[in-house]
Amino acid sequence: MTTNNSDLLVMTTTHDDEAKARTLAADVVRARLAACAQVYRIRSVYWWEGEVQDAAEWRIDFKTRAELADPLTGFISEHHDYATPEVVAVPVATGSAAYLEWVRAETAKR
């Protein structure tokens, strides 16, 4: 069964180093700012300092509650090596009721 949601987000950042990405993911989950984090390799093409960059990066997707968006953004900014780390959020429109309740429960323990 699925359920509609307006209180959950998937928040994303990237990192250029796998070990640092995994550490950031674990630190965020330990802080209960997200119920889980997924880390995977991507290729990013972007403007930076007047030039197009093409770089291997590690994407981290965090499953969290919308009310934790600001604290999670602050945590990422404080613990990230990038001068301007990507932090974007996408609302969860629908999903497995049991999974979404698990995300709520795990982040409520904060």
Rank of each mutant, 00 (worst) to 15 (best):
T3W: 06
W47G: 10
D61S: 02
A66R: 04
A19L: 10
D54F: 04
K63N: 12
L33R: 01
T2A: 07
T73Y: 02
H80D: 12
M11I: 11
E57C: 14
P85A: 13
N5D: 12
A89F: 14
V88Q: 11
V90F: 15
D17I: 11
A31V: 09
Q38P: 05
T2M: 15
R65E: 03
T13N: 02
H15L: 05
A56T: 14
D70C: 15
V39Y: 09
L33F: 02
A56C: 12
V39N: 04
K63Q: 03
K63I: 00
N5P: 04
D54H: 13
T84V: 09
A21Q: 01
L8H: 02
W58V: 01
K20Q: 15
M11N: 08
L24M: 14
V39D: 01
Q53Y: 06
T14A: 13
F75R: 05
A35C: 09
R43L: 01
E51Y: 11
I60L: 08
I76C: 04
H79S: 07
R65I: 01
V28P: 00
A69R: 04
F75D: 07
A31D: 01
G50T: 08
T64Q: 06
I60Y: 00
A37N: 00
E57S: 15
A83L: 04
W48I: 05
Q53I: 05
D17L: 04
T3G: 04
A37D: 00
Y46M: 06
A83G: 10
N5W: 06
T84Q: 15
D16C: 08
K63M: 03
A31G: 09
T13E: 02
L24K: 02
T84W: 12
V39P: 06
D81W: 11
R22I: 03
I76A: 04
V10I: 02
V10H: 05
S77M: 15
L33C: 00
C36I: 08
P85R: 10
E86N: 07
A35I: 00
T13L: 14
T84N: 15
W47R: 10
A69I: 05
S77F: 08
H80V: 13
L8R: 06
V52I: 13
A56Q: 11
R30K: 03
W47K: 15
T73Q: 09
W58E: 02
K63W: 06
V45K: 03
A25F: 08
V88D: 06
A89Y: 13
R59E: 14
R32I: 00
Q38Y: 04
A37C: 00
C36R: 01
E49A: 14
I42C: 04
L68F: 03
R22F: 08
C36M: 01
A69K: 15
G74C: 04
Q53D: 11
Y40K: 03
P85G: 13
T13H: 12
E49S: 15
F62P: 00
E67M: 07
M11G: 05
D7S: 13
V52N: 05
P71Q: 08
V29C: 03
R32T: 01
A19N: 09
E67G: 14
L9W: 00
D61W: 00
A21V: 01
A56H: 08
D70Q: 13
